[in-house]
Computed example of a mutant assay.
Amino acid sequence: VEDYPSGYPRFSALIASHSSFHVCRRFSNLRARLLLLKQDRLSLLEKRLETIDSEEAIPLSLGCSRIDTNAERLSLLLDIDEALKDYDALIQRNRQVLGFEAASHRDRVNLQNWVDGNGCIAREETAYLARTEDLVSVASLDDSAVMWLGSLAEDGRVYFRECFGRLKHPQPSISRDPNVHIFPASSITRAARILMAPFIIVLLLMPVIICSFVNSLTARLVVITIATTGFMVVLSGLTKTRTVELAVAGAT
Rank of each mutant, 00 (worst) to 15 (best):
N179F: 01
L195G: 11
L238F: 14
I67F: 13
S65D: 12
A32L: 14
L34I: 03
V214G: 06
L205A: 11
S6G: 12
R166A: 11
R220G: 14
V158G: 03
T189V: 13
L135S: 01
G63E: 14
G250Y: 01
P207Y: 01
R190D: 15
A153V: 06
I91Y: 10
E82N: 06
I121F: 06
M206C: 13
S75C: 02
S28L: 12
A219H: 14
M232E: 09
S43Q: 13
R108G: 04
G7S: 07
V214F: 03
P9Q: 02
R41E: 15
V248T: 15
S43W: 05
S186K: 03
L35D: 14
S28I: 08
V97Q: 00
A103Y: 02
Y87I: 03
E2A: 11
I80T: 02
E72W: 01
C211Q: 09
D143V: 02
V234P: 01
T225P: 00
V233S: 03
I194E: 15
P184W: 00
S187K: 02
L167M: 11
K47Q: 10
V223S: 07
K85W: 08
T228K: 02
R176F: 04
R10F: 00
G63T: 05
D107A: 15
S19A: 15
P207I: 00
L246Q: 06
T228M: 10
T126A: 07
Y128D: 09
R25H: 11
I58T: 07
I121M: 09
Q171N: 04
P170R: 08
E82W: 04
Q92W: 07
N94S: 09
D88I: 14
V97S: 01
K47E: 05
D88H: 15
S144N: 08
S212K: 05
V146R: 00
L90S: 04
L217N: 13
T218K: 13
N110D: 13
I67S: 07
R31C: 12
P9F: 00
R131L: 10
H18P: 00
Y4T: 11
H181Y: 09
E154N: 04
D40A: 11
V97K: 00
D79E: 15
E50W: 05
I67M: 10
P170C: 06
E55S: 08
M147D: 06
V158R: 14
L34C: 04
R108Y: 02
P9D: 04
F199M: 15
Q92M: 10
A192K: 01
G117R: 02
E125P: 10
D79N: 07
E56T: 09
V244G: 06
W114A: 14
F21V: 08
D107W: 02
H18V: 03
I15H: 04
W148T: 13
K47L: 12
R190L: 12
L36V: 08
L204M: 10
P178I: 03
A192N: 03
C120S: 13
A57L: 09
